[in-house]
Structure formats: C-alpha cells, structure tokens
Nucleic acid binder design. Structure first.
Lengths: 107, 107
DNA sequence: ATCGTAGTACGATCCTCATCGAACTACTTC
DNA sequence: GAAGTAGTTCGATGAGGATCGTACTACGAT
C-alpha cells in the first residue's frame, strides 16, 4: 500500500478546559498513578501494550481514557499502535509543581 | 472549675505513613478540595462550623475525617470546638510543589 | 442537674467507578 | 479476502464512598 502513515490525535480537553478536580481524581487511583509514573520516564511516549499492569487490556484502556479525558495525557494513533505521553507542559503551566510533587513521592 | 484548657490531637498518620495515593484521592473530591482551599488561607486553622459548605454537618465531618486520615490536615480539640489546619510542612516535605500547584488552579 | 451547642458515629440509601469477558473496530500482512 | 494483532467499547457485576437523618458524646453555661 501507499506509504501514508496515518496519525490521529484522540479527543482531549484543551488546556483551558482542564479542571483540577478531574486531574486529582484521575491521579488518585493506584493503577493510573502507576501509568503516570511510567510515562514520566519516557518523554516520547509509550504504547498501551508496553505498560505492565496487573489488570486486563480493557481495564487498561479504561484508565487511559480517564487520564486522557482529564487532560493528564495525550494519545496519538500510529498505525495500529496508540502512543500515550504526559501533557507535562499543560499541567506544569496550570498547576506548577503539582506533577513534580507527585512524582517525588517515594511510595 | 479549674482553668484547665483541654486540647487533644485527633489521630492522624505520621509524616512517614502518608501515602500519595490517599492524598490525591482525598483532594480529588470537590467538597474536600473546597475545604483545603479554605484552610489554605487561614494558617491558624478553622473550626468545622465556620466552613460554609453545601452539605450537612455529618457529611462535613466525614470529609474532614477523610482528609485527616489521609494526612492532609490536622485537627485539635479546643473545648467544644475542633480546629483543623493544613499539614503544609509535611505535605511540602513529602511532595514539594504539589499543594502550591493545586492551590494555583483558577477553578 | 439541666439545657444548649459543637461535632461525631451509625445505619441506610444511592451513585459512581474499577474490573472483567466478549464482541467489535482499525490496521497490517499474507 | 482471510487471518492476525492492537486496542476499544459494551454490558454486567461488585466494591467503595458521598450523602442524609438520627442518635450519641463532649464541653460549657445556668
């Protein structure tokens, strides 16, 4: 087939639409916090399948959707893969220090 | 009676026992976030009754307990009143920037 | 002791949400 | 097209928790 590399951005809130309630609620769930910690170490993003989590694929998809709709991460479709990465710039601009503070936590 | 002013500290986790999951989950609830915002402006603490919230007294007590057990605030009994204040020092030490980031949020 | 005030504890109800399995979509390869 | 792979969506289930009213405790004042 043609060398057209499809790449679509999944729906997500603009920076101005992000609500701190939603962000905190999204981060306040162990599995999702694990995802955020994993993404924090890989600026270029991670495919869903690479994430090692103690839940099934459908639950993982659910958590990624929750994080995306809260404005915590962004997801881009590349072929059959979906690459997610943290919206560091937006979060740091809206809530300076929040993400770093969370990631500084030992346990 | 004698001029003995009773003053008791309600049970709360030590700094080392505070878990980031619990803190984020506690903050990720609109009413509780309102409480935290109110406390942030009054370093000396606020009595439960002073808080103006769209919930009944029992629900307010429930949220204050949740915040206390998560390590977000501390409560001291003074006579018949219970004064709550943010555990700023502990939170800033554990998660530097987190609280400030949350409080920086516009809405 | 009695009453009033401040706040908590308990039990019930209702709603949100984390989880799973199964069915489905989208892309790639053969 | 058929098969395979990556990931989502849907429906059901079960657990957690936000809320309320009522009963209760603790302290202060009369």
């Amino acid at each position: 087939m043609g060398g057209v590399s499809t790449s679509k951005q999944l729906p997500q809130p603009d920076r101005g639409e992000i609500r701190v309630d939603a962000v905190l609620q999204a981060l306040g769930e162990p599995v999702r916090l694990t995802i955020v910690r994993a993404l924090a170490g890989v600026p270029e993003g991670i495919a869903c399948g690479e994430l090692e989590l103690p839940v099934t694929a459908s639950t993982r998809a659910h958590h990624l959707r929750t994080l995306r709709e809260a404005g915590v991460l962004t997801t881009r479709t590349e072929g059959t893969r979906r690459i997610s990465k943290l919206r560091r710039d937006d979060l740091d601009a809206l809530y300076p220090g929040l993400l770093d503070g969370v990631l500084a936590a030992k346990h």
